[in-house]
């Protein structure tokens, strides 16, 4: 199936292309936009980006598979990025991760309804460890018993990553 970008995304991409000497540097932004509009980076979404920027599909595929935020499969609306790196681990991040896994009934990497749990590397919020980011919302100094309330808040007010692209 041939996918398209919305008019708004197309405008964004063209404006960004003005800011570099060639179109290739815009591939990351275009992939972020494709993921926002089409949910994940299917083969068709990669082809859309390649076509839009006049790039070989192989190049777009190579870029899309290098960066961890790009996903080739669907995910929940809320991507819970739970840091377990050193500063967070020292303050109980693995228990926090386990609490979310238990509440949602899936393991890290899995999706349950509107939520996907990702075990994340350091989020640059180490002074407020354990830290979680979901879109533009940070959850800081998190304890395992807050898992339910955090999920509740995100059900009321989802934080899709596509909020910012």
């Amino acid at each position: 199936m041939s996918l398209e970008f919305s008019a708004e995304a197309t405008k964004k991409i063209e404006a960004l292309c003005e800011r570099y000497p060639t179109r290739q540097p815009v591939v990351l932004a275009a992939l972020h936009l494709a993921q926002k509009e089409h949910g994940h980076l299917s083969d068709d979404a990669l082809a859309l980006v390649a076509r839009t920027l006049d790039l070989p599909l192989a190049h777009v595929y190579g870029v899309a598979t290098f960066y961890t935020m790009f996903r080739r499969a669907p995910a929940g609306t809320n991507i819970l990025r739970v840091c377990t790196n050193i500063s967070c681990m020292l303050r109980g991040a693995y228990d926090v991760l386990a609490a979310f896994e238990q509440k949602l009934g899936v393991k890290k990497g899995g999706t349950a309804g509107a939520f996907t749990i990702v075990e994340e590397e350091c989020l640059a919020a180490c002074a407020n460890a354990p830290a979680i980011v979901c879109g533009t919302r940070y959850f800081l100094d998190v304890t395992p018993d807050q898992a339910g309330a955090i999920l509740e808040e995100l059900r009321r007010e989802p934080r899709p990553e596509g909020e910012v692209v």
Partner: peptide, 12 residues
């Protein structure tokens, strides 16, 4: 002087 924000996508 032009300034452009270039967003990464997850890679230390």
């Amino acid at each position: 002087c032009h300034l452009t924000v270039h967003r990464g996508a997850g890679a230390y």
